[in-house]
Structure formats: structure tokens, C-alpha cells
Design a protein around this nucleic acid. Structure first.
Length: 175
DNA sequence: CATCAAAAACTCC
DNA sequence: GGAGTTTTTGATG
């Protein structure tokens, strides 16, 4: 079991996102509809899933939530957020490196999995990079959708390929 | 606890 | 279309 995460909804024109925060910051962000469609994730929906305690939420979490909402809306509008909320990324060092590299990508630009692999010093681990992107807990804010396959192909996307295309088109990126 | 085996949002021949 | 590379995850001894 991880630390207790506070789960809060985010209403956007595209639906209701679900964000989960630790006391350090944003830990996870999910698309509307599907709960956790990532592979290999067993999400027993028993009482283990902590719902939204509208109060009893630490002020740090509320602050992160406010920033997250602003950043998410900006991102959905096709613009990069001026400032992201504090992120509490949980994963292996390899994944953290990749996610950190993803955050460096400016809005309206794309990179390939190979580019990311080279950026983190494992030029052959392109496949693993794809896996790490799929394990990215915070899509949109960590722009995993700006990663395209080598030959300009769309690649894949955990939250659904339609989302990826939509996000890319909103940023003016044509595939 | 250490080891083996399979899968993955890729890339090159 | 097939083989190659790397990491993660679940099963096995």
C-alpha cells in the first residue's frame, strides 16, 4: 500500500478528470471514463479506493489541486501551463528520468521514443521508453502525448489514441 | 529471497 | 514482415 492519496475530481470541458495527490504533490492523473486502463494494474474497487473527502484535505493538497486544475485546463486548451504543481512521481529511476525528459518538451513540439532514449543515455532502450511512457501516471501535464514513433507514426496512448490525436491537434501538431 | 519467463505506447533490416 | 534491445512485472524454486 502506498501512502494515503487524496483523490479529487477535476471538471473540464472534456470531462471529469481524476487527480490523486500525496502530501508532497500531484501523484496521479486519470482521464475521464475509464478508471485505470493501464496494463497490469489491478484496481480492486473495494473499500480500498479512497474517495473524495471534501474536507480533511491538507492545505498543501488543496494548493496543489488548484494549480493542477489551472495547468490541466491550459494544457487542454493547447497551451503549456506556466507553472506545474509539485509532482510526486512514484516509479523507478529509469521512469523518473524519462518523465523528467518528457517535461522538457515545449508545447507544439514532438519527439520520438528514440530521441527520449538517447536523451536519458540509453539509446537502445527505445522499447523500454515506450513502456515507461505507458506507465506515466500523469498524462497531459507530463506530455507523453508529444511522443511519436520514429517514422512519424502516432504510436500508442494509454488513455486512448483518440485523446492523443485530439491533444496533438489542439497544439497544432499534424501527423 | 533469487531466478526465469513473458510482454510492451519501438526501431531497424 | 521479422529480429533485436531494454526494462518492468508476475510466477517459480
Amino acid at each position: 500500500m502506498r501512502n494515503q492519496l487524496f483523490q479529487l475530481p477535476i471538471a473540464t470541458p472534456d470531462g471529469q478528470f481524476v487527480a490523486r495527490y500525496s502530501e508532497k504533490g500531484l501523484a496521479e492523473l486519470n482521464f475521464p471514463q475509464a478508471g485505470t486502463p493501464r496494463r497490469g494494474v489491478r484496481s480492486k474497487n473495494s473499500s480500498g479506493a479512497r474517495r473524495t473527502p471534501r474536507r480533511g484535505v491538507p492545505t498543501t493538497v488543496m494548493r496543489s489541486h488548484r494549480k493542477t486544475v489551472a495547468a490541466l485546463k491550459n494544457a487542454l486548451a493547447g497551451r503549456r501551463a506556466k507553472s506545474l504543481p509539485p509532482l510526486d512521481l512514484m516509479g523507478t529511476e529509469f521512469q523518473k528520468r524519462i518523465w523528467n525528459a518528457l517535461r522538457k518538451i515545449s508545447a507544439g513540439k514532438t519527439k520520438s521514443y528514440g530521441e527520449i532514449a538517447q536523451a536519458i543515455g540509453h539509446p537502445r532502450a527505445v522499447r523500454a521508453v515506450g513502456g515507461a511512457c505507458g506507465a506515466n501516471p500523469i498524462p497531459v501535464l507530463v506530455p507523453c502525448h508529444r511522443i511519436l514513433a520514429a517514422h512519424g507514426k502516432i504510436g500508442g496512448f494509454g488513455g486512448g489514441l483518440d485523446w492523443k490525436r485530439k491533444l496533438l491537434e489542439r497544439e497544432g501538431i499534424v501527423v
